[in-house]
Design a protein around this nucleic acid. Structure first.
Lengths: 225, 225
DNA sequence: GGGAGGTTACTACACTGTCAGTAAGTGAAT
DNA sequence: ATTCACTTACTGACAGTGTAGTAACCTCCC
């Protein structure tokens, strides 16, 4: 936890190689998923053997964890000088990210595939994604609280749902976009949805569908339709 | 090849066994994903060997396709007497489904895992999910058009984005719910989001975030945050 | 010269798919 | 109603492949 600097001496060359491996692993896990992404394919991309990869990362599981951490690290570097925006800017930032993602197919796919795969039995990435979503939801709740405080209104109880929904819609749109890039506009659709969800949270309107006492006990059967 | 399977004679016993296999396969693929869901585990559940499974379905790929088709078949049976609702009821139906899904963990997980996995290279389920989402989006677009026609308004250009977003938010919430069932209320959050997206589509308001000419060309780097 | 960054060679599995064979039907014709 | 020709529903053994991990050895650089 504390000083996880497992490799004491980091020669610059070595560090570069490791980064190269992490990038290659992202590509392979993105293209084939973790379960079907062989170490040999990753090794080929960086011109070594699969045993060389294991020399650096110990195990495939560990490699996945490092890949995930690596992404977070570089993401933060992307806006190192400017702090993560807060208030409404936090949501604008999400929209910008969605547009930017349209030209980052590989990473989008890696995250989409790995996050869903992580819910399976004994998946090495599970803890990472649990933590990630928990943090992001908290993050967005905070942004909502900020905006409400600024406006002198009390944050509604729906901020929980809104925070989860915003992340959800971004993820879900990514999957649809990956399956049909001609039919789904990732950036535009995300912008629309985030706008709608933020508006509904900050300035609620009477329900269109009528929900309050809606009986959940329903003998209905359509998994995702 | 040579002695191909000519639509095997459907003895009632056999059909029952096949259904049993499909159910077991759903469980295994749900729990472990397709890539990591071995035929032997499915076979064990129904008391035969993995070769027996292959006798019925020819290949693992084919089994997956049948599993997916099977789900659709049973889903439709669930509301055979009453047609799929249209207009606003279509959206209410989605909300009810989301609540119902809270007690159908296994199927939800199977769909969440398999849909994301399907975007990977040469995945046997890809065509199915492409088709599924295309159909569902069209379905929701139609529902929007109906409501707009009823109200004598012209459907806005955002119906495309809204349709994709509604499906997206449902899927995305499922993943978060599977990762943290105590923190995410699948039904309630889906209800909130669908309500918000339908309202924003049918009765648009001025933007809170301000988007029109927002420059997409942004040197930003946060994959999913 | 000692350790970091590899390699080759190998072990040990975990799976999928094939194949030959068997037992239990099925459906005429006898 | 029994026999004969054939099919269905498997089993058990195994081939083949893909793959993670290990061990021993090489080979530079500091």
């Amino acid at each position: 936890m504390s000083t996880t600097r497992r490799t004491p001496r980091a020669r610059p060359e070595t560090l570069a190689k490791r980064t190269e491996i992490l990038r290659a692993a992202t590509a392979t896990f993105g293209a084939k998923g973790y379960a079907r992404g062989p170490l040999t394919e990753i090794a080929d991309q960086v011109g070594i053997t699969h045993a060389g990869i294991l020399h650096h990362f110990g195990s495939k599981d560990q490699l996945l964890v490092e890949v995930l951490k690596f992404r977070d690290r570089t993401d933060v570097e992307g806006l190192q000088d400017q702090r993560m925006p807060d208030g409404l800017d936090r949501f604008r930032h999400l929209v910008r990210t969605a547009f930017a993602n349209e030209s980052r197919h590989g990473i989008v796919q890696a995250y989409a595939v790995l996050s869903a795969e992580s819910v399976t039995e004994d998946h090495p990435g599970r803890a990472y994604f649990e933590e990630r979503y928990r943090t992001l939801r908290q993050d967005l709740r905070d942004a909502f609280e900020d905006v409400c405080a600024e406006r002198g209104i009390t944050a509604p109880a729906t901020v929980d749902r809104a925070a989860a929904s915003i992340l959800a819609v971004m993820d879900g749109l990514q999957v649809q976009w990956l399956l049909a890039r001609d039919d789904v506009e990732l950036g535009e659709a995300s912008a629309f949805a985030i706008e709608a969800l933020v508006a509904a949270t900050l300035d609620p309107r009477p329900p269109v569908l009528g929900e309050p006492g809606a009986a959940p006990g329903d003998h209905d059967a359509a998994a995702g339709s």
